[in-house]
């Protein structure tokens, strides 16, 4: 069953067309990656999916309902959760407060506590730093907090926007290990990445975005062996 179906999604900023009508599909339990160069429109696609920008045209069907143009809090409430580009943790708030905000829509404190225990078991470093402000964490720890915060929302579809950006190579490996673990648990993930080789390795299906258009799609293994992709994105 399809978790997410995107049809003809177009987004403009003023006169600039950032997305020129893209089609995309994420099946339940799949990891789908969207790769492309800087400025290809990847982050714009993510912002449209989470409601931070309104699409000019197109449909975004999530779990059977068209969510295009809904406000961000409504989309989050449906279980479409995002780890935004640049992490965007609340730097002035503590780790514990950041996690609590991830479960803002949960009204049952016992459920919030259960989720928090699971997140802290997954990321023990966050437990150690629960009462520090997020701004004092290292880049890698902040990224884990951003993951933990999104997981507090019990995502039905997890959007990951450039999760490896700005991290040291050893931390990039750690982030992709987390993504693999989430995949093994059956989490549905749409992953946007500049690190194409790592993304294609973890993904089931892949899309290549160039200047606002999907120029290639297919099973991740096929996309990874496509000569053009090798030349342009895999340093071949």
């Amino acid at each position: 069953m399809s978790s997410l179906i995107v049809e003809g999604l177009a987004v403009s900023y003023g006169r600039t067309e950032a997305l020129k009508g893209i089609d995309l599909r994420v099946e339940e339990g799949q990891v789908v990656c969207l790769i492309g160069a800087n400025g290809a429109g990847k982050t714009t696609a993510m912002r449209a999916l989470s409601g931070l920008v309104s699409p000019r045209a197109g449909r975004i069907v999530f779990d059977g309902a068209d969510i295009a143009g809904l406000r961000p809090h409504r989309i989050a409430g449906l279980g479409l959760r995002q780890v935004p580009e640049g992490r965007q943790v609340f730097a002035e708030l503590t780790v514990a407060e950041n996690l609590a905000l991830g479960a803002w829509l949960v009204t049952d404190p016992a459920e919030t506590a259960r989720r928090r225990d699971r997140v802290l078991a997954r990321f023990p470093r966050l437990a150690e730093r629960a009462h520090q402000v997020a701004g004092s964490l290292s880049g890698g720890e902040q990224q884990m907090l951003a993951f933990g915060r999104a997981l507090m929302g019990a995502p039905r579809l997890l959007l990951l926007d450039e999760p490896s950006m700005g991290l040291a190579p050893i931390l990039v490996d750690e982030i992709f290990a987390i993504i693999s673990a989430l995949k093994a648990e059956g989490t549905t993930i749409l992953l946007v990445e500049q690190n194409a080789s790592a993304a294609l390795e973890v993904a089931d299906h892949a899309y290549v975005l160039e200047t606002g258009r999907i120029v290639l799609e297919g099973p991740a293994a096929d996309v990874a062996s496509n000569p053009k992709v090798v030349a342009a994105y895999l340093g071949g």
Partner: peptide, 16 residues
């Protein structure tokens, strides 16, 4: 306080 710091991220948390 979350909204004061980052309204977009607050929206992603489900805050109206």
């Amino acid at each position: 306080r979350a909204m004061a710091e980052n309204p977009d991220a607050a929206g992603l948390m489900g805050i109206d």
